[in-house]
């Protein structure tokens, strides 16, 4: 208490000065239009700036979680769209958003851990495995096109053969006419595939879209693959050989979706028993 009195005695006028100035500024800001506006504006500028910066930092810190949630959301949307597309007799989009029983294909989001694109046989490694219910033989797509097929799974990782692989064979069709053939990679460029065994009576023109046919158990029908760059009659003379430019660029991918097709075994069984 004594110290406080000494303090007041010593700095009393300064404290009074500061106090009265505060009172004045309170009056100025509250009862003067232009000064009040300037104060509000400046305060908003300052607080806005501070808020913006803190938001930036927190956004950056939350980037990974944000990314994961977006990935999940994307997978869900893609799942809905693809299931909707193959189920087009029931033309109600909302039904597909909410009813899981209608979803024939399930999508599992995954991050790419490692990949090659420059070799003759290219693989990608995904950071998800059995624990995320990925199993061998599942298809891998990105939001812009197909990527490959899972061939090897451990608990936390999965390896997939990319479409840029000498052994990859993918059934694809012309979007406009449904004539289908097999997509192979001839090992030339990372964004060019060849569609072979397309019957030569198929109507085709440069720029046509190629989609997956849906005849295999790996990819659902209608996933966009690429567009026709040019075409020619094959050596044998019965088929077209079409050069396809891919929609997606495997070099730039970092997130993919693995397709789970629960009815896969059933479909394979019936095909085997049929003698295929």
């Amino acid at each position: 208490m004594r110290n406080l009195l000494i303090l007041i005695a010593k700095y009393g006028s300064t404290l009074l000065f500061l106090f009265l100035e505060l009172v004045c500024f309170f009056l100025i800001i509250n009862f003067n239009k232009s000064q009040g506006e300037i104060f509000l504006h400046s305060a908003n500028l300052l607080s806005g700036k501070v808020n913006q910066q803190t938001q930036k930092i927190s956004d950056f810190l939350r980037l990974e979680a944000e990314n994961d949630s977006l990935l999940t959301e994307n997978a869900r949307l893609l799942e809905t769209i693809i299931n909707f597309r193959i189920h087009d007799q029931e033309n109600n989009f909302e039904a597909f958003e909410n009813k899981d029983s209608l979803a024939i294909y399930k999508f599992i989001p995954a991050r790419i851990c490692n990949k090659t694109t420059h070799l003759r046989n290219n693989y990608i490694t995904l950071c998800s495995g059995k624990n995320d219910s990925i199993i061998e033989g599942m298809g891998v797509i990105s939001n812009t096109g197909i990527v490959g097929i899972v061939n090897n799974v451990t608990d936390n990782y999965a390896q997939a053969i990319t479409i840029l692989h000498s052994q990859s064979r993918i059934s694809a069709a012309l979007k406009s006419s449904q004539y289908h053939g097999t997509l192979i990679w001839e090992g030339s460029e990372a964004n060019k595939l060849s569609l072979i065994t397309l019957p030569k009576y198929a109507e085709i023109s440069v720029g046509d879209t190629i989609v997956t046919s849906g005849y295999s158990t790996v990819f659902p029908a209608g996933v966009p693959v690429g567009k026709v760059l040019n075409y020619s009659i094959d050596g044998g003379g019965d088929n077209y050989k079409v050069e396809v430019e891919l929609f997606n660029n495997l070099n730039k991918l970092s997130y993919v979706y693995v397709i789970n097709f629960p009815e896969k075994e059933e479909k394979e069984q019936v095909e085997i028993s049929d003698g295929n």
Partner: peptide, 8 residues
Amino acid sequence: DSPGVHAA
């Protein structure tokens, strides 16, 4: 009509 300005 400028509360506080002259006072300050």
